[in-house]
Amino acid sequence: MEFQSCVKIINEWDIVAARQLGRNVAKELGFGTVDQARITTAISELARNIYLYAGQGSVSIEKLNINGKSGLKIIAEDQGPGIEDIRRVMEDGYTTSGGLGAGLPGAKRLMDDFDIESIPGEGTKIIATKWLR
């Protein structure tokens, strides 16, 4: 790990800070504007989920360099209520916020790798990565 930086999500404005952090790192790594927007949107969705459903948590951004491949890793963590049925929240068309395609499945589509761990009553940890092509 070369670099990690973290934003605490407590109120809605922290979502903006997390986006900003993600965009800066994405730019530094050389992601194009479209991928920057995708990464930022994914961060936004994950941070928003924390803000809406867990109350508070954190979003960390990591630069990756594995076997000459650069990438950006988002780690979104909270100690909120957790997700009872992960398969269900990852289903298309299922959203509690009523938006089209938003939420976790939306964030997953914008990234290359997406991993979610959640224990009801303890919290949720989501790790999402985008590789530089």
Binding site: R38, T41, D92, L100, G101, G106
Partner: peptide, 20 residues
């Protein structure tokens, strides 16, 4: 760049539509 950001949501909805 602003327009691109606004269209992101449509992009996600579009991908969801394809998968559905």
């Amino acid at each position: 760049d602003f327009l691109l950001e606004v269209m992101m949501g449509y992009g996600i909805a579009y991908r969801e539509h394809q998968s559905l």
